Computed example of a mutant assay.
Amino acid sequence: MEFRYLPFPELKHTPAVVVDSFHPNGLVLSHWRGAATPVLLREDTSAGMVLQALKQAWPALQNYHYVTANHFDIDALVGVWALLHPDLTLEQEETLRQIAVIGDFRELDLSIAEADTALKVVCWVNAQEKALFYPPFGADALEENEVIASIPKFHYFLEAFTEVLVHPERFKAIWLPEYAQVVQHYQQVREPATSVHPYPELGLVVIDTPVPVHYYALFSLTTGFDLVLSCYAGQRYELECKYTTWVDLATRPTLPRPDLRKLAARLNTLETSGFTWHAPSPTDTGPLLRLENQQLRKAEQYANPTERRMYASSIPLEAFQNSVLAFLRESFAGVSAKQYWTWDEMKAHYKKISF
Rank of each mutant, 00 (worst) to 15 (best):
S195P: 01
V101R: 15
H197I: 05
V183N: 06
L249Q: 14
V228P: 11
F72L: 10
P287T: 00
R266P: 03
V50Q: 02
A76R: 04
L229Y: 13
R190M: 06
I174K: 14
D73C: 06
D248H: 12
V211N: 11
P305D: 08
H278I: 01
L227P: 08
S273L: 01
F8H: 03
E307Q: 15
V182M: 03
P59I: 00
T245E: 10
T283K: 07
A348M: 01
G34L: 01
A60C: 02
A139S: 11
P38I: 03
L176T: 14
L165W: 14
L267E: 13
T244W: 05
S281N: 13
L61Q: 00
L260T: 06
L132Q: 13
G224D: 05
L218Q: 05
N145F: 05
R257D: 12
A348N: 06
L54R: 02
R170V: 05
N322K: 15
L84S: 05
R42G: 03
R33M: 12
R308A: 12
W341M: 00
F105K: 01
H71E: 11
N126M: 15
Q295L: 12
A312M: 06
H71M: 05
C241M: 09
V19E: 05
S314T: 10
W124S: 06
E330A: 15
W58Q: 04
L202Q: 04
E318Y: 13
V182G: 06
A265D: 15
Q184H: 14
Y237E: 08
T245H: 10
S195K: 09
L204W: 03
P280F: 14
K12N: 08
R261K: 12
F355L: 14
T95L: 14
K172S: 09
A265C: 13
V324K: 03
F157T: 00
Y340T: 07
A127L: 07
K262N: 07
E94I: 08
A149L: 06
L6E: 04
E178H: 14
S281G: 07
D109Q: 03
L11R: 14
V67W: 02
M49L: 05
T223I: 13
D248V: 02
S230R: 08
R33D: 08
Q92F: 14
R170P: 11
L202P: 02
P152C: 04
V19S: 08
Y340N: 14
L132S: 07
P168Q: 07
T342Q: 07
P212E: 01
S21T: 10
L325G: 00
L204E: 00
H23S: 15
F171G: 05
T276W: 12
S195M: 08
V125H: 06
A348G: 09
F22C: 02
E91T: 15
P200M: 02
T283V: 09
I102L: 07
L29P: 02
Q235E: 11
